[in-house]
Amino acid sequence: MRTVLCRGLLMVALLAPAVSARGAGTPAGDTVTNQASLTFEAGGAPGSSTSNVHVITVDELIAVSTTLQTIGNVLVAPGATGELLTFRVENTGNGVEDFTLAVSNAAAGDDFDPSLNTVYVDTDPDGAGPAVPDGVFNVADDLPYNAASPPTLDANTAGQEAITVFLFNDIPGPGPPPTDDDLGDSELTAESVTVAGLAPGAALAGAGDGGGDAVTGPGGPSSAATGTYQVVTSLVSVSKSGTVLGPAAPGTQIEYSLDVSATGSGTATAVMIRDAIPVGTTYVAGSIELDSVPLSDVPGDGADFNVSNPGAITVDLGDMTSVTPNRTITFRVTIN
């Protein structure tokens, strides 16, 4: 059990302290002394005096700032796993404090909920030497977050006041849901171990570094930041038409046309179009064209017949997005 005090007397509220934006401030546990001096004359002789020495102990002000480092929404595909959001957690108080990390993906107001995969803390212990955080995720060096041993941040030592947190979530699907452009939020909260759950201004007597009180800063004991995943999908559509070049009788050719288009916000990668030659017809050798440019029947120029897929033509269209112009594939067959 902790005994929570309000500073000074009961029913006493601190007059809003102006905590500087640069955080830190005088280190917790430091002492601030004051001694005045005096000179005078009495009975024609000079005299001097000094006052008592007044000593103040600096309380530990506990404050934390969590900020999202990832810029913009993270574009994800439905069903993707281990999608990264990067956060920075900084001790903006004036002491040495442990901070627990918690992830919330269930908040309302978004279209879907990511599911937590793992949380890593930037440590980069490179074996022999000291840990050298570098802000970049490295699966070989960075350590999974361990709730039993939360990160310790020293507000008074440059380089040790903040850490980078790597949050990995999985995306539901493949959908729908989620569908194209759906948004899913993921929130990281860092909270002081010492004053967890306390209101701003609440103090724990003697719990601060160096024997002062531990005082919850104006921002409370915790700080949260939210990152957002945005689903991108791509749908490739093919419409096929055929034109009989003459009377519908054996020996007559049919020209098939495949019109290929992509929709959605994402990119369809390595689009391969395969179309089987209809039963009762025979492929006309050398008849494949892409956007009116003839292609060969053997692999090498992006199209083939009866090689990649038996009894079918195959055309490689590469990556396509909604802004890619439609592609038109034509080929001919002869009615048997």
């Binding site: 500073r7 007397l9 005045a36 009495a42 002789a45 005096s49 006052s51």
Partner: peptide, 19 residues
């Protein structure tokens, strides 16, 4: 005695709002 002809005292206080 000479030194103490005039005594000097220093104190420090916080102002708090009491309801």
């Amino acid at each position: 005695a000479k030194q103490k002809h005039v005594e000097l005292e220093a104190k420090a206080e916080l102002e708090v709002e009491v309801v």
